[in-house]
Structures are given as C-alpha cells and as structure tokens.
C-alpha cells in the first residue's frame, strides 16, 4: 500500500527532465497523435471522391457528412433529436445506476441476500437484453417508458456486478482496521467499504454508460419519432447514408463527452490512488 517509496521520486525526476523541454508544445502534440489516423483516413477518402475514383454515394465523403450535420443543426432538427436521445440515456442511466448500486451493495455486503438474489440476477443477465423489447412494448407501450426501461436494464447489470464484486473483494485487512475502531455496520459501509470500492465503482459506471448508449439505439429502433436512432432508421429508409454517418458521428461525440464528464467529475475523488495508470499518465 504505502511501500512504494521511490515512485514519487522517479516521477519528480521525469518532471524535471520534461521541464527542460518545450513542455507546452508536447502537451498539445500528444493528444494530436491519436487524431492522426482518423484524420488521414477521412482526408484520403475526401480526396478519392474529389478525384472521381468513387462517386461517394454509399460512403459519403466527410464534407458531405459535415454539410448534413450543419443542415440538420440549422433547421433545429438536430438539437431536437439530440435532446430526445440524451434525455432517454440520462433517465435510463440514472435508474439503472440507482438500482444496480443498491442491489449490488446489498448482495455484496449481506451473504444471505446474495444467496437469495444473485442467482436470479445472473440468470436474467444471460438473456440478451434486446429480447425484452417485445415484452416491454406490450407492458409499457411504445413511448418513452419502454425505451427508458430497456436502457436501465442495460446499465443495471454492469453496475450491479461491479458494486457487488468490488465490495466482496475489499481487503479484509482494511476491514479489520474498521473493526478495531469498533465501527458500526453503517459506519463501516460509509467510512471504509464505499471508499474502498470507489475506483471499481467508477469503472462500472463508465461501462454502464457505454451500454446505455448502445441500448438507446436499440430502443430508438423500436419505433421512435425522434432521436438519433430515428435519424439512423430514417436515413436507411430514405437512402441518405450521409445522414446515417452524421448520426453515428454525433453518437460518438456524445458518448465520448459523457464518459469524459464522469471521468473529470470523479478524478478528484481518486487522487489518493497509487495505481500504475496514474504514474503512467503523469510521465
């Protein structure tokens, strides 16, 4: 735990070495490196279409995708679809997280609850979630409720598993510290268990959010009049590949942005971590 005496020192040496170099340039150039490949591919395709080697009808060039996005944005369509999709993801995610966290914590902490609950949850998890769609439509109608429920299901499982697994694997030695100081059950959860599982919990939130984005598409395929998933279906039915790619690009941007939000919102909570990743990022 606290035995890594030399790590901060090495870090400092590397920081010193970096300070000698033009650090600002490096800080901006490094993320750029990751952009190199997609930008090159996009530009290459643009050039190929421009030169007439392909008509770009089925695979629209970036300029056309961009024009479609601008057009949708100008008409106000785009924000309507984004708001629809985003609100479905947010409410489904919130529901899934609350349910997954509570049930996961209960079956992680309480052995009897785990014996009672976990086999059923695991069995339900084995069902491909899309298989619920017809049932949800019958039960909850074709409007928002069934969509939000499907997304919540997708988010629930990774969060449930993450919380339960993390609580079960909290180091007994740390729990013993709590016992020595005679912490009550709730105090043990609040002062030791929840904090110990925090890193794993945040990972499971991010996995859950990723699945939430996956399921919103499925949900919007099952009959929506607005949303990015509707744009996809609409583009397919009316033969507008540029609109499909535009929706995909916006999905990617929103997915990345919401994931990044979780990451920066939780970073201050994890400063104490002595993880390999931290030092690798810092270097």
């Amino acid at each position: 735990m606290a035995m890594t005496v030399d790590l901060p020192a090495t870090e400092r040496i590397e920081a010193d070495a970096q300070a000698a170099q033009p650090t600002r340039l490096r800080r901006y150039l490094r993320p750029m490196l990751g952009l190199l490949l997609p930008v090159a591919v996009a530009l290459g395709w643009e050039v190929i279409v421009w030169l007439g080697f392909s008509n770009g009808r089925l695979v629209p060039p970036p300029s056309k995708v961009f024009a479609t996005i601008v057009e949708l944005a100008a008409s106000g369509e785009l924000s309507r679809h984004i708001v629809a999709t985003l609100s479905r993801v947010v409410s489904g995610f919130a529901l899934g997280v609350v349910a997954g966290t509570m049930l996961g914590a209960i079956s992680g902490y309480w052995v009897l609850a785990r014996r009672l609950l976990d086999p059923t949850v695991q069995a339900l998890r084995a069902i491909p979630s899309i298989a619920w769609v017809p049932l949800f439509i019958l039960w909850l109608g074709i409007f928002e409720t069934s969509k939000v429920a499907l997304i919540a299901i997708g988010v629930f499982f990774p969060v449930y598993l993450g919380v339960m697994g993390a609580i079960r694997s909290v180091d007994r030695k740390i729990v013993e510290v709590g016992r020595i100081f005679r912490l009550s059950g709730p105090a043990m959860i609040r002062r030791i268990l929840l904090l110990a599982v925090l890193p794993a919990y945040i990972v499971s939130l991010r996995v859950g959010l990723g699945l939430g984005w996956m399921f919103v598409v499925a949900a919007e395929f099952m009959g929506a009049s607005e949303g990015l998933g509707y744009l996809l279906i609409d583009g397919q039915q009316l033969g507008k590949p540029a609109q499909i790619v535009a929706a995909i690009v916006i999905f990617a941007i929103l997915g990345k942005a919401t994931d990044w939000l979780i990451e920066i919102a939780t970073a201050p909570l994890l400063r104490w971590q002595d993880a390999f990743g931290h030092h690798a990022e810092a270097a």
Partner: peptide, 20 residues
C-alpha cells in the same frame, strides 16, 4: 470477546486507509 476501546493493535503492515 470483541474489539475494545482500551485495546489497540498494530499489524505487520501499516494498514493505512489509502483514501485518507
């Protein structure tokens, strides 16, 4: 028969809580 406030213990490892 259970941890008592008058008895403290130090383990082989420091067992500090890493988040504090």
């Amino acid at each position: 028969s259970a941890p008592h406030e008058k008895i403290g213990i130090i383990f082989q490892e420091p067992r500090l809580l890493p988040w504090l």
